[in-house]
């Protein structure tokens, strides 16, 4: 296995710009609260050539921010991202075409005033992957590969259903001939039957093109289905990662266990028992001390409140950040 995309101790802070009120208060000598949200904290991970890594977590856990950092769209505050040993960014801008992204909302990610053929061709033409004269053939080819009629190139995004639009978004990303595809909740807004169609398309294309993928989702069942390895995020940090089959069969972190127990699954007997986790995600503005999960954790002890457990490998290779793992 060769590492293709690597994140080394990546942290991303978002500093809230002080409002007028804050600045007036500060001018009168009020203590500034200097609120900064640390969306991603000290995350290291590796995407190996040809594998799909599933990134799971609830809203606000930082999974999309991490995805954007890995895609080279967002610069980390500290730490670095390396694609084949080189940074995908330079001076705050993405400089590689080898990583492409498919976003959750195909309504927002496609320009409503552009014919979808032009949306698909724009990147490849700009980067010299194809000449403008030959771009029509490229568009037709990609539309066919994602299961759409090549004649649709002349249409506008509003003329498509959500599932078709996501197909267009996939075609647009893949027309750039990327090595890495970052998918941020690509099926979250789709109906069950359409979701199955898009997942099948994703599995087919990934195999045919030998793609390396980061698949971000809140849906544990979807992630299980497409991923070789998974990483579970909680409040900006990875709390557990490992081979998908292992993590799902023997989750080591209490949060992973709680997530799995909270997720309704249709089992063989179709009896569904839910064991919800108590409490809510704490505010990232004021993360709990020690292990961020301790206020909701049934196993929490004194050490969990005081010391943050590092992400350490278990004997079976699973990485785990838990004092009781």
């Amino acid at each position: 296995m060769t590492a293709l995309l690597v994140a080394e101790a990546v942290t991303r802070r978002f500093v809230r710009r002080p409002s007028l009120g804050d600045r007036i208060a500060a001018a009168f000598g009020a203590a500034s609260d200097g609120r900064a949200v640390q969306a991603v904290t000290d995350v290291s991970l590796t995407l190996n050539q040809g594998e799909t890594l599933g990134l799971v977590g609830e809203s606000g856990c930082g999974k999309s921010t991490l995805g954007r950092i890995l895609a080279g769209i967002l610069a980390p505050s500290t730490g670095r991202v390396l694609l084949d040993g080189a940074s995908p960014m330079q001076a705050g801008h993405k400089i590689t075409t080898r990583i492409q992204t498919v976003f959750q909302d195909p309504f927002a990610s496609l320009n409503p005033r552009k014919r979808i053929g032009d949306s698909i061709a724009e990147g490849p033409v700009a980067h010299g992957i194809v000449t403008r004269a030959a771009s029509g053939a490229l568009v037709a080819d990609w539309l066919a590969r994602v299961g759409l009629d090549p004649d649709f190139a002349q249409r506008f995004p509003h003329q498509f259903s959500g599932g078709q639009r996501q197909r267009v978004a996939i075609a647009r990303a893949l027309a750039m001939r990327p090595d890495v595809l970052v998918c941020d909740e690509p099926v979250a807004s789709l109906d069950v039957s359409i979701q199955a169609q898009i997942l099948n398309l994703f599995l087919d294309l990934r195999r045919d093109l030998g793609l390396t993928c980061l698949f971000i989702s809140h849906d544990l069942n979807v992630v299980r289905h497409v991923s070789d390895r998974v990483a579970i995020m909680y409040l900006g940090r990875i709390v557990e990662s490992g081979e998908a089959a292992r993590v799902y069969a023997a989750p080591g972190h209490p949060y992973t266990r709680a997530l799995l127990a909270s997720s309704p699954r249709l089992g063989l007997d179709h009896a569904v028992t839910l064991r919800p986790i108590a409490g809510e995600l704490p505010s990232p503005l004021a993360p709990p001390s020690g292990c961020a999960f301790h206020p909701r954790c049934p196993m929490a002890s004194d050490i969990c409140r005081q010391e943050r457990p590092p992400l350490t490998p278990r004997s079976d290779g699973q990485l785990l950040a838990c004092h009781h793992g």
Binding site: A196, N200, L203, N221, V222, R224, V226, A245, R265
Partner: peptide
């Protein structure tokens, strides 16, 4: 169509 009822990585019956 549900991924939960399928073999991981296998095509879903759409």
């Amino acid at each position: 169509s549900l991924p939960a009822t399928a073999q991981p990585g296998a095509r879903l019956r759409q």
